[in-house]
Design a protein around this nucleic acid. Structure first.
Length: 465
RNA sequence: GGCGCCAUAGCCAAGUGGUAAGGCGAAGGUCUGCAAAACCUUUAUUCUCCAGUUCGAAUCUGGAUGGCGCCUCCA
């Protein structure tokens, strides 16, 4: 598998530190609000990456943090008159609801910043020992000047370039404008923790270094997040982590492109965002997932109502295909496969290979979805009434394998209830008698009960909806 | 100012040197008692524009135009 590494700016062959095991860390949300549809992109992308790595037989340990202490958390909690902890608990719960709606499985571990103070302090102490940190008025800063030959590798800029465009106000306390806070002294009314530098709280970047190292070790395989995290967040994580351990921090950095609205970045600061949960009230979350995977993860993607509707229509075709295979599987003859049946099974395996090849190429989900549609197209042509069960089985297996990775897993409908079963039986008799009027009446009756009936060569086929 | 990305049909989107995947939409057709689903046909002689390299370019090079991102909290 090839992965585009932000640090080298090229696709590299993926080889985890330990063969067969993948250590994956993705920066999670600051839990001061519900997440917006732009935030949904990394959630879906990295969930899909994880599912694909598992599909390829790898054992994935996936860590995604919650930032539950920072300026925005404190401000919002004060506005609402609740504690930071209460605020965090509320939005963490909401996060899991919304992420689940998108088909994102929980990570292996979801650590919280506030529960990892000793680990963060330990890294800062190492940075002091290595001459890369200094204290000023109870704050602790990373000394970018002392690290200047290494700083800027990820974002591809040196300190001078960064500085020249810096819009930050010169901070009297810091020795250099690019230095960033590792620890902030407590201000009145703020939550604080004990540290060797007095009461205070961690800077934003240090938590990810600490939690990544704690759960995954000093060198991990993949660190992911949105493109806007490259600088300063990931640059700083890299500096402080390697500055502390002297070991490589991350083998592959992966960054997803933005979800735009009207060709502009959707973000909380621009105020042009739409909450994921509000969108789910109008659109099927699985259609949102399909939409998010319909373009390559590094490309910008423009959000619109029309796009989601197209995604929904495309998904319907897949659901229908799957229902048709399930129906055929039920009716198919369990016999020795003939040449046609073997050809269908070969085709299904070929599409699975095509899917893997697309995903192997830096998680090309758009191309991979093409393979899924081609599987359905070919199967719809080839699976005629009378196909052997093994042929249908092969198609169904490939379909479920692929949709399992992409996360389009809408469950199969329950069978019809007794009332509908009775109507079906009556309609079968009416059809046998060529009593079309009665047949249509019964079809309408089932429609009223929420079932759609179709007539096929193998008899009536019902589905909910 | 520095760093970087993008431009493919009505819409979305793959394709990075060998002659334009796939989906949505639209039009016509086959099948069907009628439907539905499915299938078939049509919908880019051409990839923003101009020059160049090459037997061959959507793909490489140079330039132009348009759009976006990071350098400040952000996915």
């Amino acid at each position: 598998m090839k992965i585009f590494n932000t640090q080298s700016r090229r696709k590299e062959e993926f080889a985890p530190v330990e063969q067969g095991k993948v250590k994956l860390y993705v920066c999670g949300p600051t839990v001061y609000n519900y997440f917006h549809i732009g935030n949904a992109r990394p959630i879906v992308v990295f969930d899909t990456l994880r599912r694909y790595l598992e599909h390829r037989g790898m054992d994935v340990t996936f860590v995604q943090n919650f930032t539950d202490i920072d300026d925005k958390m404190i401000r919002r909690a004060n506005e609402e008159g609740i504690t930071v902890r209460e605020l965090a608990d509320r939005f963490i719960a909401a996060y899991f609801e919304d992420a689940q709606a998108l088909g994102a499985r929980p990570a292996t571990v979801h650590p919280k910043a506030t529960e990892h103070m000793p680990e963060m302090i330990a890294i800062i102490e190492k940075l002091f020992a290595n001459g890369l940190a200094y204290e000023a008025n109870g704050d602790v800063y990373f000394d970018t000047q002392a690290y200047r030959s290494h700083y800027g590798r990820l974002s591809g800029q040196n300190i001078e370039d960064l500085e020249s465009g810096a819009r930050v106000e010169v901070d009297e306390i810091k020795r250099h404008p690019m230095d960033f806070a590792l620890w902030k002294a407590q201000k009145p009314g703020e939550p604080a923790w004990e540290s060797p530098w007095g009461m205070g709280r961690p800077g934003w970047h240090i938590e990810c270094s600490a939690m990544s190292m704690k759960y995954l070790g000093e060198t991990i395989d993949i660190h992911g997040g949105g493109q806007d995290l490259v600088f300063p967040h990931h640059e700083n994580e890299l500096a402080q982590s390697e500055g502390a351990t002297g070991k490589p921090f991350v083998k592959y950095w992966m960054h997803n492109g933005f979800l735009n609205i009207d060709n502009e970045k959707m973000s909380k600061s621009l105020g042009n965002f739409m909450l994921a949960r509000d969108i789910f009230k109008v659109f099927d979350p699985e259609a949102v997932r399909f939409f998010l995977l319909s373009a390559h993860y590094r490309s910008p993607l423009n959000f619109s109502r029309e796009q989601i509707e197209q995604a929904k229509a495309a998904l319907e075709r897949l659901y229908t295909a799957r229902d048709n295979y399930a129906f055929l599987l039920d009716k198919a003859e369990d016999r020795e496969p003939g040449a046609d049946d073997l050809a269908v099974a070969d085709m299904a395996r070929a599409m699975l290979t095509k899917f893997d090849e697309a995903m192997d190429d830096d998680l090309n989900t758009a191309d991979a979805i093409g393979a899924l549609f081609e599987l359905c197209k070919q199967a719809n042509i080839a699976l005629k009434p009378g196909a052997a069960k093994s042929a249908v089985r092969a198609v169904m297996d490939a379909f479920l394998e692929i949709t399992g990775v992409l996360g389009f897993v809408k469950p199969v409908d329950d069978g019809p209830d007794a009332e509908v079963e009775a109507l079906l039986a009556a309609r079968a008799q009416a059809r046998k008698d060529k009593n079309w009027k009665e047949s249509d009446r019964l079809r309408d009756a089932m429609k009223a009960l929420g079932y759609t009936v179709e007539d096929t060569a193998q008899g009536q086929k019902v589905k909910k909806g």
